[in-house]
Design a protein around this nucleic acid. Structure first.
Lengths: 101, 101
DNA sequence: TCGGAATTTCGGGAAATATCGATATGTTTG
DNA sequence: CAAACATATCGATATTTCCCGAAATTCCGA
């Protein structure tokens, strides 16, 4: 967990929002878009794309950036990729920030 | 306190370090450079510049960036500007991060 | 197997950031 | 006042980030 990489990832409103949306998907995505959410897979790229209002490619870039620094994790199921928060990593990060600053 | 501005400010190793150095100046600066530290003024720009190994202008830029987003505060005394952490703001920030993520 | 959907990857132009040296401003001291 | 400092600001260039569209990949269903 590279602290600087994490801060870079969080230096963007959309990426911050994605993390917040994924904290409570039911609050932020229409119910019919969350069919596989109960299986704890997360939310798929196209739903996040819609919500973010950006192009699919940008959204995909953002998601893989968040994944690279460990904040979220991906599960591929057929043609969909579901992303969810990596709560353990986020907790670790919070502790790290707490200690460092 | 703009969260994004804070994350941008922290997306740089030197700026992170400055915050950490200022947490415990005695640990990070030679004693003879901390003559006014006991007055709770902070550490002056040239000492931080030396420690950072960057140009004075860059260091000054960094400090005013950190100041703009509220993480540190400045006190001008004669020709010197002393910077110290804004512990209240940093605490607020930690709580904000805790809540948001 | 073919067409289409979801996603990723790639290349690029515009905008923002990093970092410097030069310059400007304000301060102290002779 | 002039010289010497400490710091801040400005202008320039190199690098990075933002965000897109096009193309590639993977998977599914007819």
């Amino acid at each position: 967990m590279e602290l600087i990489m994490v801060f870079k990832a969080l230096s963007n409103e959309t990426r911050i929002n994605i993390l917040i949306w994924l904290k409570e998907p039911r609050l932020h995505f229409p119910a019919e878009e969350l069919q596989d959410y109960d299986a704890n897979l997360g939310v798929c790229v196209s739903d996040i794309t819609k919500k973010a209002g950006l192009s699919p490619s940008t959204t995909s870039d953002y998601l893989s950036l968040l994944q690279k620094c460990g904040l979220i994790e991906a599960t591929r199921v057929g043609q969909w990729t579901y992303y969810k928060r990596n709560e353990g990593a986020i907790e670790t990060l919070n502790n790290l920030i707490q200690k460092a600053f």
